[in-house]
Design a protein around this nucleic acid. Structure first.
Lengths: 338, 338
DNA sequence: TCTCCTAAGGCGAACGTTCGCCTATGCTGT
DNA sequence: ACAGCATAGGCGAACGTTCGCCTTAGGAGA
């Protein structure tokens, strides 16, 4: 188990260890017989190259660092899987750091990644989007790409287009004749929730409808928050015929709350979610939602990062991911008002 | 950006680089004034230790490798989060490798982890549970702990007790008076599905009930599989009054299929899931299920691994995780048969 | 005054690579 | 017979650490 090195292989094959290196990396000119002997020797004593030593010498760790929000939710997990697969395709490994909910440990983990000399960093930690220190570190450190805003900018962003994630559902509901369209938002301190709210407002305005704060509730991104938000909405704002929910997890809670109230979806109230979580294809009723390509987003982030590294860390354009509506059974025409 | 090393700090503080090392690691005896000077110098030129070099020299990478099935599902993701947190607590980083569905790339990734000289490996890749090569590599390589069986053994296992995940739900249904209890299994090639099936069978036998293959369908662990399996069951086996579903994701599909058939849950048919997926607290109806501590499982795996490393790779006992029933609204007494 | 001790810090070596340059050997062409 | 040249492989250095041992200087004790 004591690690066997190039030197051990060399001793066995009666050559210098540098020659072994050449053979194993297919570099220099080596006689076929010697090559064969070396390869066999390596095989016999179970030589495994030491990537640490290689990285030290080559000044490239072939490693990406990822700092992410808790990914036990499906959406950040999909993003992460996309990153991992694309990284692997390029021969890179991924070091994972998942943050506390408040993101307070981000700077510390960033430092760990820098000590480990990662070649690049991918961020998905909305809780730090206003953290100036994190912004500074990221601008000073290795190449970085982020899924959320970074305080002070300077880091390219990969994001679903919020015109898509918000405008598509709201337009869909409007086209079905709904006029009192409530919204359950994600945690309102997050920029993505704010952006979607702004788009909701803008689309309503386009159609001559006022923005009514009574129709908007914070669901905090989670199932239970969606459930509670819906009950609050129904308590205080009668006449709601549709709800746009900023993610599918909350939408599950929304459907449950409506059911508890004896309201039928979609007959009494339409619901649109966002993300196309695997589960909502079979909720009762199956949910109309927005499909967001999280896997692809992860892959795109890796590619962007690699471009950035290759091009000497120039600042590329932000990437906006195309999204699309998935029409299922949770939306229908507004009940004929009388 | 060109990396600054101990030597650079040393030059600035007018000492040897080894002295800088001593100060920064708090090792040798150094005069307070010198110490101060060194710390300031390090600060000023932005010294960041090189973990690669450190690992090379110390022969310990402070890294854990994790090989996991696609974790865009919540349960493997929770396990992974648990691992990451516990690893972090011990100052270890985690290198992540997620496999193709068939696990065919496992041996390759294992090799990468060994090249990177990880201190230990945690496996969660059920697709490889019969792969002899993987088993061999794991027994020969660094310390390892697994969440699923390893071909040939020799690796300690951390697992929810299948007496819990299967016996608890089935006993619950029996105690409610159900006698025709169907089961939607996970992918039947997996040992965990097989074990749960065996326990289901054994518990029925305890109560003098025969094992009826017509009541068992493979749902493949996914929502859609649960949905399809339920329709097949209802088509061919009338009189089912309860369904035990081996995971919650499938249970969502089961609830939907029952709803489509016009069967009320729990009045016409009870349903029990497994895992306590966050979503099933608000399905319609909320699902009775088995809570499995996946976070804790991840943390326990890390602790077991560290014990194993510390104790020179002795073979510890397997760990079985305690599970418990969560009673919600999807189960009720069997309809009074007439 | 001499010995001994301790504190402070220098120094060499090693961890396992890769890279570039150097040398020895033998063959080709005239 | 000799210059010229591939071809094969050796060798030194460097990447950035940590570790253990050595040296030096100054002070305490007899």
């Amino acid at each position: 188990m004591a690690s066997v090195s190039l030197r051990d292989v060399a001793a066995r094959a009666n050559v210098s260890f540098q020659t072994v290196s050449k053979v194993l990396n297919g570099k220099g000119a080596v006689a076929p017989a010697t090559r064969q002997r070396i390869i066999e020797a390596a095989e016999e004593i179970g030589y495994i190259p030491n990537a640490l030593a290689r990285s030290l010498q080559s000044r490239s760790s072939l490693t990406l660092g990822v700092i992410t929000v808790d990914f036990s939710n499906t959406t950040p997990a999909q993003f992460l899987v996309g990153i991992e697969h694309e990284a692997r395709r390029h021969g890179l490994s991924v070091i994972l750091s998942s943050l506390e909910p408040d993101g307070s440990d981000c700077a510390r983990y960033l430092r760990v990644l820098m000590e480990r000399r990662v070649d690049g960093i991918i961020m998905n930690a909305p809780a730090t989007e206003e953290d100036e220190e994190v912004g500074r570190l990221l601008r000073a450190g290795p190449a970085c790409v982020s899924f959320h805003d970074i305080a002070g900018g300077g880091v390219p962003i990969v994001q679903p287009a919020s015109e898509g994630t918000a405008a598509l559902p709201v337009r869909h509901l409007l086209s079905l004749g709904h006029r009192r369209i409530a919204m359950v938002t994600g945690y309102q301190r997050r920029h993505s929730a704010q952006r979607r709210t702004a788009v909701y407002r803008a689309v309503l305005a386009e159609h001559g409808l006022p923005y009514d704060p009574l129709l908007v509730e914070d669901g905090g991104w989670e199932v239970e928050g969606g459930y509670a938000a819906t009950h609050r909405l129904l308590d205080r704002a009668p006449g709601i015929t549709a709800i746009y929910v900023q993610n599918d997890l909350m939408a599950v809670g929304v459907l449950n709350a409506l059911h508890e109230r004896g309201l039928s979806v979609p007959d009494d109230c339409s619901v649109v979610g966002c993300d196309d979580h695997p589960v909502v294809a079979r909720t009762i009723p199956p949910l109309t939602t927005v499909s967001v390509p999280f896997f692809d987003a992860g892959a795109a982030a890796v590619r962007l990062l690699l471009d950035r590294i290759a091009s000497g860390n120039t600042m590329p354009e932000d990437v906006f991911l195309p999204v699309s509506m998935i029409y299922r059974a949770s939306t229908a025409s507004a009940p004929s008002g009388e």
